[in-house]
């Protein structure tokens, strides 16, 4: 068994939709993320990034498959998983009526940080994220940049080994987005295992050690940027992404027995395509 802090095997989520019936939001996802690594989850809107990360953070229950964080299975030990995890997304807002100091204290306490060390941890975070000037003002009075810093400090309040950032820059201006990426990069230096979802190619290029391309709920490739370039013969991540997404759609078309014309050549090393070839080969 891998000792990666984050690992998934066949992780799937099926939703029921009144008009569409059963929808495979995430389909048999296999991932892992090591300490001191940022694994980017790159996909279009609705690709299954958020659902995957929500299952990892135990907000959603997987329909099938498994996921482990620091060795704890998400369905069997959800509280243990959450204790090892810091989760940040555009929909994890701060409590407006309390102060940043109270926020950090609350999240450190409730996530099981040693009680005697909580105050020291709060001060450490206030210093590190330079929020001392407004640590005792109510969150509702802060600017969005200030809130963002407090929000990240909140995410790491209990010093978790695994961090999840779900499209963290989606509502930020350029300067705040740059600062956020810098903070995430620093957290990697601290040895955190970081999952970072985005649909912004440049972000994934700059920040991620490895990139998982996800499309229609399936992981199409997981590689370093150089590895992806080598596998596809393309330089720009955007081209690489379109290449994989196109292949996936061609596969779907082939499976539906429509047409695979124009889907382009199969990229060397592309797992789903290779699997298909292997299956075809074995059937002969």
């Amino acid at each position: 068994m891998s000792d990666s802090p984050v690992r998934t095997e066949g992780l799937s989520k099926v939703f029921y939709d009144a008009s569409r019936g059963e929808v495979n939001a995430v389909d048999a996802v296999d991932l892992d993320c090591s300490r001191g690594e940022i694994l980017g989850l790159l996909g279009a809107n609705g690709a299954g990034k958020t659902t995957t990360l929500r299952m990892l953070s135990t907000i959603l229950r997987p329909t099938s498959g498994h996921a482990w964080l620091m060795g704890h299975e998400v369905r069997a030990q959800p509280e243990r998983v959450r204790a090892e995890l810091g989760f940040y997304s555009a929909s994890t807002a701060l409590y407006p009526k309390i102060t940043p100091r109270e926020t950090l204290r609350f999240f450190a306490q409730v996530n099981g940080y040693p009680p005697k060390s909580v105050e020291a941890r709060v001060e450490e975070l206030i210093d590190r994220f330079r929020i001392g000037d407004y640590a005792d003002a109510r969150v509702e009075k802060l600017s969005s940049g200030m809130k963002q810093k407090v929000s990240i400090a909140r995410t790491v309040a209990h010093d978790p080994p695994v961090l999840i950032f779900d499209e963290p820059t989606v509502a930020l201006d350029v300067l705040n987005a740059i600062e956020l990426r810098k903070i995430i990069s620093d957290l990697r230096s601290d040895g955190k295992a970081i999952l970072f979802s985005t649909h912004v190619m440049s972000e994934a290029e700059q920040l991620c050690d490895r990139i998982a391309i996800i499309h229609h709920g399936r992981i199409l490739a997981v590689e370093t940027l150089d590895g992806l370039r080598e596998a596809t013969g393309l330089h720009y991540l955007e081209d690489i992404f379109v290449h994989y997404a196109g292949v996936k759609d061609a596969d779907a078309a082939a499976e539906a027995n429509i047409s695979s014309e124009g889907a382009g050549a199969s990229p060397p090393g592309a797992a789903p395509r290779g699997d298909r070839k292997e299956r075809e080969g074995s059937s002969k």
Partner: peptide
């Protein structure tokens, strides 16, 4: 409505 629900769902409490 305040979007703090999901924040609360990720704390390490049952």
């Amino acid at each position: 409505e305040r979007s703090t629900w999901e924040t609360l769902m990720t704390v390490a409490a049952p």
